[in-house]
Design a protein around this nucleic acid. Structure first.
Lengths: 251, 251
DNA sequence: CGTCTGTTTGATAGCGCTCAAAGGGGGTGG
DNA sequence: CCACCCCCTTTGAGCGCTATCAAACAGACG
């Protein structure tokens, strides 16, 4: 394990374009520096590419469902996905949103513990779990990288727990907007206006609120002149970032 | 990565005692089969032992605080600890309880993202993060094991998110009692009565409730004859396990 | 232009929080 | 050994935040 793998990469700089050192499609990937693949180069990428299958999803497609046998893992190349868990009576909890560079299937052992739905058109790299496992044997640094990503995911998840357990509806929405903005910056976008690929329903199910409560929280933020509608409802313009930060409850 | 590392070990059997194959203290450890160390043997354990420092904590002691520089990681040998995050205004969220065999410090990169408090007397193995890192270079299987543990922790954390986001107070308490009971079984205990080393306050801060709400939920379960007080308030007797399961909301 | 879906706004209700006080158990000192 | 005290837990009364139910509104699409 290199020492850099132990450092915080939650605040990654925008991806740096590399000069293609190989003919594999990976070489041109725009999110490679964010993904597992960032630790591989040249010939190694070719080997990864050999076991990779391209998959395209349309908005609304489910990639897998909670309880499906988890033989496949994925790497998101472009687009956004939503992970959710369902209670038998229909209550739903969205456990996370995934974007380009995110790894999908890390948690699962025997079966997927949640469902994965495309909330935009999505392009992803599919791997048979066993194939990837075999590659780990040759490139242990991939496992190191995956552990590092798991560590970050765990840290994020615990922030979510704090949010769900102790924050008010406005604090939750404020925290979420800032987080989404930061993530957009990580992917090399401006982060303002904040892109909201998910609907209010998905948002509510992520924040532990109803769509109505999300809507009311947003209205209150608008009334306070802290945010405003972007061009569409899928975009929110942050007018007063400091004000928004103060309303997160995190200070 | 061996294929067994990809299998679900959330339902581990009670620890199997090994015949000591080495003179290191680890050989006699009762939770070794649950911990990172389970993948090491004989000579390898000696190397682990060489960089390990024994630590003892009394109930109430803090091992580290949120924001401290995270140079150390730990393995809990015996006792129970409580991890918590604090908001500036004093609201607290307990993110997890750790028991024998659990790894402490997995999440952290630069600094600890939460505080760790001993809720019973605790014995633990302390490692300098860098020392352990170096050992990973020699024994990549430790990293594999750690990734497997991270995967399980992530799965548990997502159950917690579902609970905090979508469950009622009674469902939260019911889920928690069953989970704690299962964990006790994993450690080789009976699981009934359920040991509750944490106070009602810690419990509430874990469940996203107040102590009063926890108390009321427990009272309701007692009135329904589903649980009853154990010998002390630190123990709860499950009278009707099926009834308790039905009240978790998970069916 | 009409329909359909998703969002916002409004009125009301309920669950869990807050504030308050009583109950209980363990430890300490007399 | 008992009495007292302190802290934790339980119980009670009332309130507030978010859910629920319902309807108006808006935007996308045919």
């Amino acid at each position: 394990m290199t020492s850099s793998e132990f450092t915080d990469n939650r605040s990654l700089k925008p991806p740096i374009r590399r000069t293609p050192s190989s003919s594999s499609p990976c070489a041109a990937c725009t999110v490679r520096d964010l993904a597992v693949c960032s630790v591989l180069e040249g010939d190694e990428l070719d080997q990864l590419n050999a076991i990779m299958i391209d998959v395209n999803l349309s908005k609304g497609d489910y990639l897998f469902h909670q309880g499906d046998e988890a033989n496949l893992v994925f790497n998101i190349a472009a687009g956004a996905m939503q992970l959710s868990k369902l209670l038998p009576d229909g209550r739903r909890q969205v456990t996370g949103f995934l974007f380009g560079g995110d790894f999908l299937g890390l948690v699962s052992n025997r079966e997927y513990t949640c469902s994965a739905e495309a909330i935009t058109d999505v392009r992803l790299c599919k791997f048979r779990r066993l194939d990837l496992q075999n590659l780990f044997r040759d490139f242990p640094k991939m496992e190191t990288r995956l552990l590092s990503m798991a560590r970050n995911e765990l840290a994020e998840t615990q922030d979510q727990i704090l949010m769900l357990g102790r924050k008010t509806s406005v604090e939750r929405v404020a925290s979420f907007l800032l987080k989404l903005s930061d993530r957009a910056v990580t992917r090399g976008e401006s982060g303002n206006p904040v892109p909201l690929p998910m609907g209010r329903h998905g948002l509510g199910d992520y924040l532990g609120l109803t769509t109505e409560s999300v809507s009311r929280a947003l209205t209150r933020l608008k009334n306070k002149q802290i945010i405003s509608d972007g061009a569409t409802k899928q975009n929110i313009l942050i007018l007063d970032r400091n004000g928004l930060q103060e309303l997160t409850g995190d200070l």
